[in-house]
Design a protein around this nucleic acid. Structure first.
Lengths: 118, 118
DNA sequence: CCGGATCCTTATTGATACTG
DNA sequence: CAGTATCAATAAGGATCCGG
């Protein structure tokens, strides 16, 4: 996968693809939200509890952006107090490999941090 | 990989791992910079050209953070005009699977965007 | 319970100019 | 070339109040 001066086009395509991905997932919370929803559908307060550190404002905003991009679906049930559920879409599921690699890396990174320069 | 109420600990570990990863790679440019250096070592201006849109300030800042985290190494040669080269470290190479999945997803995402709701 | 609207404070980012 | 300094714009984040 070395890119010689001869094929800069392939490099640019690759970089552009990564930029596209980052444009959608760059927020500090988006990946975590998606990962969290990957397990099962959840409600607003559940998410706020599990994605620790996030406030309701940011959560609402991130969810909206994810919904716009078709990664997450918002479902409202007109029950008594009103119930809103979020679940990942089929398209959002395609992020699973990305999420998985990030989880793997994050895990081994933490392991590395604990073992070096203690 | 469904997480039932019974194993919330596994969920939390996973989410935490993803947060760890995002803490290090969340910047709009970091992944692109690493991907760009994945091909071969590069100089400051080369990076600024290839990571299009980034300014010198952000590039310098992102590179510093990447260096602090041990993902990128900075090498200065005291030649005539002064030469600085950046190359990815062995540890940075471990991000390759993450980068790859992101490139794959970004590519198919772009493809999808062009085909729907034209 | 689920957010939207508003206000305010800080952190990030960008554009431009400038130095060794 | 490889950055730093400076200023201005933007975004993130918190707090609070409010409506459905």
């Amino acid at each position: 996968m070395i890119c010689k001066e001869a094929q800069p086009a392939e490099c640019r395509g690759r970089l552009r693809a990564i930029q596209d991905t980052m444009d959608i997932l760059s927020g500090k919370w988006k990946m975590t939200i998606i990962a969290c929803l990957g397990f099962q559908k959840k409600r607003f307060m559940d998410l706020q509890r599990e994605v620790e550190g996030i406030g309701p404002k940011m959560l609402a905003k991130e969810l909206q952006e994810l919904e716009i991009n078709g990664l997450v679906q918002r479902t409202v049930s007109c029950t008594k107090p009103l119930t809103v559920e979020y679940h990942i879409t089929e398209y959002g599921q395609t992020l699973r490999p990305v999420i998985h690699e990030m989880a793997v890396w994050g895990k081994q990174h933490r392991h590395r941090i604990m073992h070096t320069t203690s």
